[in-house]
Design a protein around this nucleic acid. Structure first.
Lengths: 376, 376
DNA sequence: CTGAAAGCGCTTACAG
DNA sequence: CTGAAAGCGCTTACAG
């Protein structure tokens, strides 16, 4: 038998389609016995309301479009999970499209979503011009996560990248590090620029001279972190810490250090940004700035739902939080200052401005076991 | 102005809606000048065909439902990316729903997808009973990835878990390992059972006695890998290698070893399964069994498209591949056999049946630098 | 090649 | 509380 329609149900229940419709939408009271008859008929026939027909008739698609950049990104993945959670229990579902950070691809993804059309739009990052998003926002409730849109400031869920990055750098500076290599994100990313800015501001506040040769640009993916460290070594750069603009590049940097036989954090400290779920399980567990990505996804969904329900936009404040784990340690000099009697042997990198050439030597040498307690 | 409809376009172009419709669907020839007039009018009005109305009229939603388990899973993420890629260029888009490996949640996700209704269904893993999937498959083309469904064997895209796991174990056995700890997946997962089976079969072929106290069950997530290693140590188990049923648990195990100051692979070898994209960047890079997840996603999408287009189901064969990286090494005994003059000092774990108690000692001791070449 | 018309499966004023 | 009817924006035989 073909899929049963509302008409089949109404007929089986001995009521009009209007009445049958009302029991499913709940828009008006229906007498008890008729209600029951409809439910029974629906059950018996295995009736499922056709969402498409319903959308066309009601003018609402019950779909929230989500423009993401990469469906498999560990960073956006958490946001998507949050969105799913935030939509749970509502009658809306999410439909995803990926833009891969390419303006044209984002445009066509957006085009596809609007053509459905969706009842609301959540935009995660990307390079779509502000004007285009403002134009969409005029048609449909829109929330942006991880980017800001001029004129739509209160519909943008963001963290303070400058402050977050500043705090990462401060952590390193307080541990005594002065020569800090920085692996930046692509300068076309606003996040990347802001994080670089936070780093530089901290340096300035600590009266540490900025050293352009300690800054390398990556693309937010692992291999670029590895390359960055390699190029740093190739140019003979000296540093006691590496700060990466995101965790994925920090992973790559970690591998670059490992390849040279450099220990983290004994020889060189490492910090990331994002706190991906796997960052608590790297070797050593990565010190990084946590972004509340899941929470932002939930909030984005709730904000859309609120707007759709005619409620005012909920306000939320998203704080970053430094997760001090085991990839950062005081410089040797700082350790000595703190406990002059510390008997542990100083590694070749223990003076705060290590020579990578000596750190490279593959002579067996003492390995510090992790001392997490020391740094808390 | 409200969103323009086909009727607006037809009117502006001076043709009937039928004709206007034909230029957009391409279902019939339209005279050149009328075609142009319609295109121009559409352009001018900023017309976008309404996908919902189109679906209702044509009886095709142009939506492929994807039942996944966790939208943020690094494993399924790759499959989703493949599906997106495979659908690219077609007029279909994917709509995702997550089941979180819970039968009822999967049912409601499936219910939501079928109620839209979708034109095709791709199912990733999960615990939905075979009969339910068979029932869906009767209504709509269905492809399953990473699980098998009785009666739908040729619509299931799978790898040979038994063989893959066998090959991982063989790799370890050939390196001389005999006491291999195994971190299994949950026994309710078919994949988990098959991988355990492959492991045990290899042991049997090598005449290594199976040792139940070396097997711990996890849940495929990182923390369970950490717990597994801890419980192994707690019970005083002796082993020179750890094999995990997936990469995420291998990451957790890696951390457990690190916490005890145990070196990988010098003291203990470690192997995973899946080859997640970050596994090439762990410390050390993880030896693991690659699953062609992205390719399976592409193939699933293509199979659906083919079926929808009336073409026969394409056949594909998915091979796993052992990625030998740097987390596995020969046992000390095996190294000596291979090059009796190897001058490197033997670690406390070098005899193939190490004592974790001694490996635990936090005395500084020589650290082997990585020797990737040695194992190729 | 083209238009008028029916119809996709619902919802929702409108009139009782 | 309930039914008949119009309509959502398209597609697609059907007849020219």
């Amino acid at each position: 038998m073909a899929t049963p329609t509302l008409e089949d149900v109404a007929q089986a229940a001995g009521v009009s389609v209007s009445t049958a419709s009302r029991v499913f939408t709940g828009t008006a009271k229906v007498r008890g016995d008729k209600h029951a008859a409809v439910m029974r008929a629906a059950e018996q026939l295995g009736y499922r309301p056709n969402a498409i027909a319903r959308s066309l008739a009601s003018g609402r698609s019950l779909l929230i479009g989500v423009l993401t950049q990469d469906i498999s990104s560990p960073f956006y993945g958490e946001v998507l999970r949050g969105i799913e959670q935030g939509l749970e229990g509502s009658s809306y579902s999410a439909i995803f499209a990926s833009g891969h950070w390419r303006v044209e691809e984002e445009a066509s993804a957006l085009h596809g979503l609007m053509g459905r059309p969706v009842d609301g739009l959540i935009v995660l990052g990307g390079h779509t011009p502000d004007e285009r998003l403002a134009a969409m926002a005029a048609k449909v409730p829109l929330i942006a996560v991880g980017r800001s849109v001029r004129g739509l400031e209160d519909q943008c869920l963001r963290i303070d990248n400058v402050q977050g990055s500043y705090d990462c750098a401060r952590h390193l500076l307080e541990l005594g590090h002065r020569r800090i290599a920085y692996i930046a994100g692509p300068e076309s990313h606003r996040d990347a620029c802001e994080r670089l800015q936070g780093f530089q501001r901290a340096l300035a506040d600590w009266k540490v001279e900025a050293n352009p040769s300690l800054i390398v640009e990556g693309d937010f993916l692992e291999p670029s972190g590895l390359l960055a460290v390699e190029s740093l070594f190739a140019r003979g750069a000296l540093f006691s810490a590496v700060m990466a603009a995101n965790d994925q590049m920090a992973y790559g940097a970690r591998l670059g250090l490992y390849r040279r036989g450099i220990r983290v954090p004994e020889d060189i400290s490492l910090v990331g940004f994002d706190d991906l779920s796997s960052s608590a399980f790297t070797t050593p567990p990565l010190t990084t700035m946590r972004q509340p990505t899941y929470e932002m996804g939930v909030a984005a969904a709730e904000a859309i739902l609120a707007t759709l329900g005619g409620a005012p936009l909920p306000t939320a404040d998203f704080r970053v939080q430094l997760m001090v784990r085991e990839s950062t340690a005081p410089t040797h000099r700082e350790r000595q200052r703190l406990s002059p009697l510390d008997p542990r042997p100083a590694g070749p990198a223990g003076n705060g401005t290590p020579s990578p050439a000596s750190a490279q030597a593959s002579e067996p040498r003492p390995q510090d076991p992790p001392f997490p307690g020391e740094r808390l």
